[in-house]
């Protein structure tokens, strides 16, 4: 198959890589947990995509994500903001507000009808409001993302937890469990706190008419629903939600090659 470029998103939790065809469609993809040696991992994943698609060593590569500077054979390196903006605009084909819930940070990106990033907001130096927050809490409760939505539907919303700190939230949960509070109420409280935190990040850029979601957090259907409800706007998950950054990087590599 003909491959235009490869994009790699070296995130804090997972590394994603895609190979795209000249139309920008994803022809091959790969995702795995981030290893300590990002350089070797990135090299291996890129090689894997090359052999899967039969593309040559001269296929242009772009990198993004926290480990982007560790990707040795990347021709162009761009920030996650630009990569997600580009990937999301390609997928949605219109102006949009993107909410990306990643492992290390949550990002809200406002993309104009031209496809350019107009403005963005990110969580501050704190795990609350990031994918890591939900990961820690759900791990403590031994719950997977697929179990969340039905639990939120069942919950009455009778308890709440602090949304200021992952560590404090975890100890609050221990107290709630000790008091015999049903697990679905705790799951609801955690997600409501999260939605409030990310919701205020969205509001920093002004209330949107709708939000689109990407990143690992978008796999949590319950969170997507609750965030939309909290903001009173429709919330849609982008196709290839976890690969939006890698796609944006690949599109950048392709346009660089084409001199666009």
């Amino acid at each position: 198959m003909t491959i235009a470029s490869i994009g790699l998103d070296a995130g804090s939790t997972t590394v994603k890589a895609v190979a795209i065809n000249p139309e920008g469609q994803i022809a091959a993809r790969v995702i795995e947990n981030t290893k300590p040696d990002i350089s070797s991992q990135a090299e291996r994943l890129i090689e894997g995509l090359r052999s899967e698609t039969g593309s040559g060593p001269d296929t242009t590569v772009s990198a993004t994500g926290y480990g982007r500077k560790m990707v040795r054979n990347a021709g162009k390196v761009i920030t996650e903001i630009t990569a997600h903006g580009r990937g999301a605009f390609f997928l949605a084909g219109k102006a949009l507000t993107l909410v990306d819930v990643g492992g290390q940070d949550s990002k809200v990106i406002r993309i104009a009808a031209s496809g350019n990033v107009e403005d963005f907001a990110m969580n501050d130096k704190c795990a609350a409001g990031t994918g890591r927050f939900l990961e820690v809490i759900l791990h403590r409760l031994e719950i997977g993302y697929d179990q969340v939505e039905p639990m939120l539907d069942r919950a009455s919303g009778s308890v709440s937890i602090s949304n200021t700190c992952t560590v404090f939230a975890e100890s609050e949960i221990i107290s709630l469990l000790a008091r015999g509070v049903p697990v679905e109420e705790i799951v609801y409280a955690v997600h409501a706190a999260f939605a409030e935190r990310v919701g205020s990040l969205v509001m920093r850029l002004g209330r949107p008419s709708a939000i689109h979601m990407s990143g690992g957090g978008a796999r949590n259907a319950g969170l997507v629903k609750l965030l939309g409800k909290h903001l009173c706007v429709p919330a849609t998950v982008l196709p290839e939600a976890q690969f939006v950054g890698a796609l944006g990087a690949a599109l950048t590599a392709a346009s660089t090659r084409a001199g666009i």
């Binding site: 926290y66 761009i78 920030t79 903001i81 630009t82 990033v117 107009e118 990110m122």
Partner: peptide, 18 residues
């Protein structure tokens, strides 16, 4: 201790890219 250089650099680069 109240500044994360990695996150700061990301914001700065992303801001310049806009």
């Amino acid at each position: 201790r109240s500044y994360s250089p990695e996150q700061g650099e990301l914001r700065v680069k992303a801001f310049m890219e806009t």
